[in-house]
Each structure stands twice: as C-alpha cells, then as structure tokens.
C-alpha cells in the first residue's frame, strides 16, 4: 500500500502531510498561542511619530545589527533590568501595513548594542542626532553606517525656529554658511529610540537571570581597595558616548570633564548630584540625563573616582557611603 519507491502520489502526499503536520505543531499553533498576550500596565502606547520611527528602523535594516531582547542569562544584564517577556512587544510587533508584516525586532546579531533599554540609557535627543548624522562624531571606534540622508543642509540665514539643528563638528562638516537640520524622519526615528524603555513590572517583582559564576579579579587595583567596581570600564560603558574616552567632550554638544572645575572640586557634592539627577543648566550643551535609577552608589563612586583621577584631573577619592548620603539628601523620603 505504501510503496514509496513506485507510487509517486503516495510518496509526495506522505511527505507533504508529514511536513505540514510537524509545521503546524512546531510553528503555526505555538505562534497563534503566542499572540494571546496583554501589555504591561505601565507600558505606554506608541505615538504616531514613534510608529513612523519604527517603520524607518525597519526600512533602514537596523535589525541587521541591533537586537531588542534581553535574554534570561546574566551576561545580558547590561541591556536591561530584567529578561524580556512577550508583553514587552505588544505595541511594537504588530503588522505594519498591508505590504509589510510585524517587524522582526528580536534580531539575531549584536554587531551594535542591544536597544531594549536605549531610551533609558541614552535619552538625550542631541546625542542621537549627532550619532545618526555620523556615529563617529560621538563614538570614534563605531562601525555603524552614517545616515546623512535623514538630515538636510540649510543656509544659515534660512534656519527657522522650528528647525532642529545638529552641532556637527568641523571634522565632519566644514561649511560655516550651512547648517545641518534634522528631517521629520530623523526626529521620528529618535522618538522611537527614546521610547525604548523596559516597562516596570507591577508590584516591583524582578524575574531573575540565569546566573553565571564570575571569574576572580586577576589583579587588585586602587579602586578594589575601596571595594568598588572598575570605574574606567563603567565610564566607557555609561559616559564615554557623550563625554568621550578622552574626557574632552564634544564642543557644542557635550562638556569636557578634563580640567572641569566641577569634577576637580574638593567638594564632590555637585558632581554626584549631577550624575544622580542630570543637568541642564548650560544652554550651549545638551541635556544630561539622570542616572539615579540606573547606577548603584558603588558604581557612581567608581565613575566619579575615575573622572577625578584621569586626563590630568586630580582630586580626592570618594566612597560609596559618600554617594549614599547625597542620594538620601536629594531623594524625597517617601520614594
């Protein structure tokens, strides 16, 4: 009856039925069930501008290098406070239009950083504008493509109040009579990136990561003597995108830390306050986001110590306890 060798109809029908059955079981049914999720209560709806940004994110192929998933393993802790869950994608992973399906946001390659939490990590619009115009203006080692077609050049005299200008350094755009202005597309893409924040879970519960044992540190440095994490590494991770690894900042965008009176001040209070609360007192520079919710006291102390003792700076070290006092001072008691 089942003579596959001689009966082509039986052969093809069996292969077809077998594959179809397996496919339904392993792909179609689980996929169908996966749609049955609700958004988290704290998760905001995407605005029209943010959705437009998402659509640009897809057409420019950003997913080729950027993932948007915090895996449940410890090494992914740097990308978010908790592992990603199906609800996180409730608003973003919907069919885009009749021609285009739900975007493949999870990604399979991390040539660039994961973007699950980029809105929290890097909220400053000005940084994103510079970075999109040419990533090497802010991160000199970056290999990300530049997106000048999301910007236009305008004669300096034609700039109106509504135009968002980008303070690109001379090295990348050298024409004093012209200014770089962001297009609607650039602003939409940035609005989308700024919206990427992991929503808080109700009740403050945090699902755990699968732990991996850490290697013992090879050689103890001065900071480990104070029992602090590695400040240089934390600085590269958290601060260098704006203030640069050289500590020189970017003229017209981000202030220098090297030689800064605030950083070198024997009284560290303002420095720590700025890291905790952010800073927007100087109009010639972009706004600095607050890091109170992202960095621990130990991490802030380590970063401050790194800044106070690099690039020619020299000031006394501070401890996690010092940071804790200032944090208590600036945080309302009921929080």
């Amino acid at each position: 009856m089942f003579n596959f060798h001689k009966d082509h109809r039986t052969l093809i029908n069996t292969a077809l039925a077998g594959f179809l059955l397996l496919s339904l079981g392993i792909a179609v049914l689980p996929a169908y069930q996966m749609q049955d999720v609700e958004p988290l209560p704290s998760q905001p709806l995407l605005t029209e501008q943010q959705l437009k940004g998402l659509s640009i994110y897809i057409s420019e192929g950003c997913v080729a290098c950027h993932t948007q998933q915090v895996r449940s393993i410890e090494m992914d802790k740097m990308w978010g406070g908790r592992p990603s869950m199906p609800s996180d994608y409730y608003f973003s992973k919907q069919r885009m239009d009749i021609w285009r399906q739900s975007p493949s946001l999870l990604g399979s390659e991390r040539t660039g950083p994961d973007l699950t939490n980029i809105g929290k990590r890097q909220p400053a619009e000005q940084w994103h504008l510079l970075h999109l115009y040419n990533p090497r203006t802010v991160v000199s080692e970056s290999v990300m493509p530049a997106y000048p077609w999301l910007f236009e050049t305008k004669d300096a005299s034609e700039i109106s109040d509504n135009d968002v200008t980008v303070p690109v350094g001379k090295e990348f755009f050298n024409d004093a009579s012209q200014q770089i202005v962001a297009t609607e597309d650039a602003l939409a893409l940035i609005a989308y990136l700024q919206s990427l924040k992991q929503a808080e879970l109700p009740g403050g519960t945090t699902p755990a990561f699968i732990a991996s044992a850490k290697k013992a540190p090879a050689n103890a440095t001065a900071e480990q003597a104070l029992d602090l994490p590695d400040g240089a590494s934390l600085y590269t991770q958290t601060c260098a995108a704006c203030h640069q690894t050289t500590g020189k900042g970017l003229p017209g965008a981000f202030p220098p830390l090297s030689g800064s009176s605030i950083v070198n001040d024997a009284n560290y209070e303002l420095l720590v306050k700025i890291i905790l609360q952010g800073y927007d007192a100087r109009s010639e520079f972009g706004q600095m986001p607050a890091f109170a919710s992202q960095l621990t006291n130990e991490q802030i102390a380590a970063i401050a110590n790194h800044e106070r003792n690099s690039w020619g700076n020299s000031a006394a070290k501070i401890s996690a306890e010092d940071v804790k006092k200032i944090r208590e001072m600036v945080t309302p008691a009921n929080d």
Partner: peptide, 28 residues
Amino acid sequence: LASLTWTIILVLIAYLPFYQNGLGETII
C-alpha cells in the same frame, strides 16, 4: 520533489498573517 513541496508550504506559512503579531512572528 519533496523539497519543492515543503518550500511551497514554508513560504505560505511564513507570509500568511494570521498568527504573526507579537512573538508569534518570532516563532515563525
């Protein structure tokens, strides 16, 4: 022959929209 059969089904499953929102898309 099987490869052609399977691939036709595969393309259909990949492009039909009924189960592809949210992480359904990721499974597919």
